[in-house]
Amino acid sequence: MAILEISHVSKFFGGLAANSDVSFTMEAGMIMGLIGPNGAGKTTLFNCITGYYPPSKGEIIFKGRRMNGLQPDKVCKLGMVRTWQKVRPLAKLSVVDNVMVGALCRTNSLKVARAIALEQIEVVGLSHKTDFLAGSLPIGERKKLEVARVLATKPELLLLDEVMGGLNPAESEEIVRLILDIKARGVSQMVIEHDMKTIMRISDRIVVLNSGEKLTEGSPEEVVHNQAVIDAYLGESHA
């Protein structure tokens, strides 16, 4: 069953097309990698999907429902939530309070929210930092906090925008394990990542964007051997 259908989505900023005529379908339970050189329109597409920008053209269908024009909070309530490339911790709140804000999306009880939050904090491995202020965490733990917070909203589809950016190899490896763990729980994920090795390893399917357009789509195997992808990343002289 398709959990997300992107059909002919374009987003214009003035005359600039950040996304133009992008279409693809994502099956439930899979990890979809979204790659492309800088400025390819990956984050813009995330913003369109999660309601931060209305797409200029095209449709976004989530679980059979048209999402165009829905605000991010409604999108989250329907089960689709994103993390931020530049992390956004609620700095003056503790780790557990941060995650509780996410959990309160599904409950009005602080007690229930706290229980959900503690559970998700354990999943991402931050239990030793529960009562620390979010603003005091180093970058690796902030990224984990970001993931715990979105998990607490009980999503069906998670959009991860460069959760491994700026992390050292050991930390990246932990996040990889976390992403695979989340997949094992049946949550679908769309992942933007720059590290090719990692994205090839975790993705079931990959969409490549370049200059706002979809260049190609396929299994990791197909994508690495695609001539257009190699050209886009390395320049045509290497072809």
Binding site: T50, Y52, Q71, P72, D73, C76, K77, V81, R82, W84, R88, P89, L90, A91, K92, L93, V101, G102, L104, C105, R149, V150, T153
Partner: peptide, 12 residues
């Protein structure tokens, strides 16, 4: 603390 983050976490 962060209006955009709050918005994405389901806060109207």
């Amino acid at each position: 603390e962060d209006q955009d983050a709050a918005h994405s976490l389901g806060i109207n």
